[in-house]
Design a binder for these strands. Sequence first.
DNA 1: AAATTGAGTTCCAAATAATGGAACTTGCTA
DNA 2: TAGCAAGTTCCATTATTTGGAACTCAATTT
Lengths: 297, 297
Amino acid sequence: MHKASQSLEVASANVENPQPSSRGKIKEKSSENAKIISYKPAGTGTLGKALEVLDIIALSDVPLRFTDILKTVDQPRGTLHRQLSNLIEEGLVLANPDGTYDPGLRLLKLAARAWSKNSFRSIAEPHVRKLHEATGETVHLGVLNGLEVIYVDKIESNQTVRMHSQLGNASPLYCTGIGKAMLALLPEEDVVQRAQQFAYMKYTETTLHTPELLLADIQKVRNAGVAHDREEHEVGIRCVSAGIDGGENSTVAGVSVTAPAYRISEDTILKWESLVFETARAIERDMVVSMGPRSQQ
Amino acid sequence: MHKASQSLEVASANVENPQPSSRGKIKEKSSENAKIISYKPAGTGTLGKALEVLDIIALSDVPLRFTDILKTVDQPRGTLHRQLSNLIEEGLVLANPDGTYDPGLRLLKLAARAWSKNSFRSIAEPHVRKLHEATGETVHLGVLNGLEVIYVDKIESNQTVRMHSQLGNASPLYCTGIGKAMLALLPEEDVVQRAQQFAYMKYTETTLHTPELLLADIQKVRNAGVAHDREEHEVGIRCVSAGIDGGENSTVAGVSVTAPAYRISEDTILKWESLVFETARAIERDMVVSMGPRSQQ
DNA sequence: AAATTGAGTTCCAAATAATGGAACTTGCTA
DNA sequence: TAGCAAGTTCCATTATTTGGAACTCAATTT
């Protein structure tokens, strides 16, 4: 109990869940069920601590030196030094000649596989493409991950912007169309809980920057079936989004169409609402076929 | 040579680097042993073992179940089970409802940062783009990583193919233009050593599938300053490539132009040779400016 | 229906790896 | 040249990982 509690306690709070799992599965963390969700597992175990360091290096906006990392992570110098050595040895971190550290190439290689193997993404791809063709605007496909949405696919309307520039990027749930659409799929108490955990930032005038504003909007999304981002994350940018419920698969995701506000009329928005909604439904249907109950191999 | 320089080179690209390091370096497994390059560090330490499991999951072409992984990795069931638990808890691995495992979303998020933070890539980007504009064909940017080239950027000639589909992908050095161009930059004994370690596959009729064939070609590349892939990896595909020597930075990389053989004449090839060569030189110059001696921050 | 098998999970003493404090280098600065 | 800051190494202590075996549970087999 002593040690188990430390390594896997994330689920400590959400005990007793019927979980109709057939064969046992490995302690699945906060997926759909988790009543109490701990999004910040805080590096427990050797792996967790190593990843904590890796996160600091990867998520920083400026190159970090040894001491910078040391200040962020609460550890003795000797310990951090060895952790960095291990990360470098494994190719997860790159030591620059000037004494700073960068994320390593191995991450790219792993992620390339993670992306191409992602079955949800490949199932959704034709639908995403069709939506792009129907609207002519930028389309995003995102997956729920804790308090963020992670973009797993994207088709740009404007080809001058690099396509892949944003894949894998993460945005907060509360200020994006996809984020709100996904929240609306979750049980109310789960939404309430997450709403309390956001570190709200008022990106624009219309950003929903309190749990109350957010929860009220989520209710509207539930009724409408689609979510709107009315310049809530970036001035001048609007988006229409619909949530995708993976069901069995427990994946919660969303699609969206995004465009500059000046370019689109209310009529266009209405048209997009149904297009986006239908796209989400189509993806859900394909998911049941491909990964649903009783299938796969 | 100044500042701190802890380029520990465990499995880094350049063995045998005089490296006038001033401050001590991190760890450094065995400096006199640097002749023997261990590209397969074989999971040492807790982190290494965890990554070994992650690699198996990420690099497999089919979804793996617990037992499949167990057969590949030589470990007791109990141990593997806990390792998987840890990987799942950290978001590096995703447990599917059907009992199979996939690489997790956290990898995408980390890799997105690794990519956008990669200073080499961003320095090279304008040159890569220019080369694409000058040739109208597909341009690749790759970095040396052990026995492979990892593609860090790519501009497609044919927009119908998804741009990001290949980023992070790895190919063997011996059968790609960029790979051979990079090898040509390394000291001879290093090339010989790597040449012996490849698991040669005869992809096409012209694949250089023995160390002898490869070494002979590398010599030609050294003389010419550019490397050719004459349908050595894929039938009907040719490519012209030049190596990029990071110098101080110790990054070894390469650029290439690729096109279907039927579409290009010998004249075109000649023109590309100088374009590609010049692009590589231009990138090297920019690297010295941005990350070379006396700079940073 | 009972027995068997296969797949996954849990437990715990023993083995191994990580920790953290302190001493040690080294380059830079006052 | 003394002092300082940044980075590196060492090693006894502490904590985690290991691996074998026992256990659960469902799907076959007999």
